[in-house]
Design a protein around this nucleic acid. Sequence first.
DNA 1: TAGCCGTGGAA
DNA 2: TTTCCAAGGCT
Length: 361
Amino acid sequence: MEQVDWTYFRRGLTDWYRPDRRPMPWKGDRSPYRIWLSEIILQQTRVAQGLPYFERFVAAYPTVGDLAAAPDAEVMKLWEGLGYYSRARNLLKAARVVANEHHGRFPDTYDGLLALPGVGPYTAAAIASFAFDRPVAVLDGNVFRILARYAGDATPIDTGPGRKHFQQLVDAALGTAPAAAFNQAIMDFGALVCTPRAADCPRCPLADHCRARAEGWVYELPVKGKKAERRDRYFHYLVVTDAAGRFLIHRREDRDIWRQLYQFPLLEAGTLDLRPAALMQRDDWPDWLPAEELEFTGRSAPYAHQLTHQRIGTVFHTAHWPEMRDVPPAYLRIDRWELERYALPRVITRYLETDRLTLDL
DNA sequence: TAGCCGTGGAA
DNA sequence: TTTCCAAGGCT
């Protein structure tokens, strides 16, 4: 088998690239803070989904020092709805490291950046090249796909050795080219031409040397192993209000989804088909919640919430507890309008927005 | 290392 | 309806 022609690859990509093909507010920006912020927001996230969040964060926190000084809950609220909330927690941690341990300046090397919480190999390479012109190539989902196809390489991308292999390929592809432009070009190319499902091979400048194209493997590449099993879970939220119409919420702290987000009292069961009478008899019914003082008033239609590896069916049971007392300190009693100030999982904000048809009790 | 962590859009 | 997956990182 003949050698892969990286010179052709590099030139084709460079000639194809035009910054304005895919305009983004942070493109061409040299500010490490804004580049870092955009890269964290865009991890596993589409540009269209992340863009409004970027605008809001920059407006709320113009500098890394502003962000570092922000309260945790405020940052979580601003991140609400974007998912992968560990990114928000690490964002704040990293901002405080930069502000307090680096005098407000971002590290200007790959290794220095890599040491920040939430900054992995991809993000470190992105910031190092875009902000500091360091000669490092990014390896993201686009790069895996493009290289696997161009080289006709069926090495699985989701293993340690696989990542190492593709890192070597992208290093060879970059060569001594200017890294910032190369990295921007290869990611734009992956988003606009060499796309996962409908690649624009007829207009691809690399098609003549693309092995996947020649061998009819475009959509078999890249190769991924193990597809995750999906787990089904069933959540029953107790939407309890007192005589003044105040709600009971608490913050999730477990090693589970939605850590540091707020929710109503929750019972997790093996089915969605449970009435209040059945819920009250369960072992995990909160002992501080006196069933005899509660008046259940409604049950929402089920909400289906799809996560990457979990499917969560959710029902909201509304109940009155006129004289709330002896509530554990972890629980807050808040007015309806105050609810807006807390970061909530999407399934709960959807419930609050739609409050869909109530089923029979 | 493998499993886990959200959400929304497209097909 | 289901599946895939999008500028990944942590444990």
